[in-house]
């Protein structure tokens, strides 16, 4: 296929294994009763897992830059929406 760079099968399996390990980690950490910190870690771990899927399974890593820029635009939009809504909700 054209000039696309491929992600080797070995890497794919490694990514899958990492996803399983991270799932185990997030379940374990949730049991530790870290208080408000636990939400933060849960979301952080989820973000890492999502990035793995996006970069390797969905091949963002080998796509042209514009794909990542587009994703960033969506992420920025979501961040802005969240932040400004909390300008209301957090101070109401």
């Amino acid at each position: 296929m054209e000039n696309r760079v491929h992600i080797p099968a070995g890497h794919v399996l490694t990514v899958w294994a990492s996803l399983l390990v991270l799932t185990a980690v997030t379940v374990t950490v949730a049991g530790l009763h870290l208080g408000s910190f636990s939400v933060f870690t849960a979301i952080a771990i989820a973000a890492v897992k999502a990035s793995l899927v996006l970069l390797f399974f969905m091949r963002l890593k080998v796509e042209p830059v514009i794909f990542r820029v587009m994703l960033l635009a969506a992420a920025a939009t979501i961040t802005v929406i969240m932040a400004l809504t909390f300008a209301d909700v957090a101070f109401r």
Partner: peptide, 11 residues
């Protein structure tokens, strides 16, 4: 789902 799982099951 990666986000849904912790938000509902791990809190």
């Amino acid at each position: 789902w990666i986000f849904l799982f912790p938000l509902f099951y791990l809190i």
